[in-house]
């Protein structure tokens, strides 16, 4: 069984938001909400300010806190690691929105919760998620964690450092940030 995951090279990312725009059109995300956004973090560096452009979205955690809290089973985790949501079962109670430590979920104006799906429908067709495909800097890599020869493992292996957000929560995100500009890892409140 595949174990899908993504990596974003923060050294390459320029925060252009091509990924976020591609996501909007691919998934017909309505105005006012978004599945994917860029956080620009500016911190003092040794000789000059350090800037981290960090795309954020659902991390498809190995231990997703959003899944157990769902009272109807609308939110579920697939065998291949994708954390998905069935809108017809969703009562929009917001429990999963609050449970997500990364604020990756939101209320869709159609009356259900919504979030990144790693473009599950594109994976079916053997294509990369829309954000990965379009990324002009090639900062995004998508693949199978189990595939030791795959490009994802290669990207992880060649990275100077690999971080996930809020590791202390034990959620084991399946989106890895590579080469954070700060020597100690991700910037901001991490």
């Amino acid at each position: 069984m595949a174990r899908y995951a993504m990596a974003i090279d923060l050294e390459a990312c320029v925060g252009c938001a091509a990924c976020a725009v591609a996501c909007v059109t691919e998934n017909q995300v309505p105005p006012g909400v978004t599945r994917l956004w860029i956080r620009e973090i500016e911190e003092e560096g040794p000789s000059r300010p350090q800037v981290e452009f960090r795309p954020e979205q659902c991390y498809h955690c190995e231990n997703p806190p959003c899944v157990p809290v769902c009272p109807t089973g609308a939110t579920y985790q697939r065998q291949d690691g994708l954390v998905l949501l069935n809108p017809t079962k969703c009562i929009a109670c917001g429990a999963c929105v609050v449970a997500c430590p990364y604020d990756s979920r939101f209320l869709h104006p159609d009356g259900h919760v919504d979030k990144c799906t790693f473009c599950a429908h594109r994976l079916e067709a053997g294509r990369d998620p829309a954000c990965v495909e379009t990324c002009p800097t090639g900062a995004r890599v998508f693949g199978d964690l189990e595939d030791e020869e795959g490009r994802l493992r290669a990207a992880l292996a060649s990275a100077r450092r690999v971080d996930v957000r809020k590791p202390h929560l034990g959620t084991e995100p399946r989106l890895f940030y590579l080469n954070a500009p700060r020597a100690t890892g991700l910037g901001g409140e991490e």
Partner: peptide
């Protein structure tokens, strides 16, 4: 800044 209105997109639901 390309950060979606410069705010966090997931407004509080409750």
């Amino acid at each position: 800044m390309t950060s979606f209105y410069g705010i966090h997109p997931s407004a509080e639901v409750w």
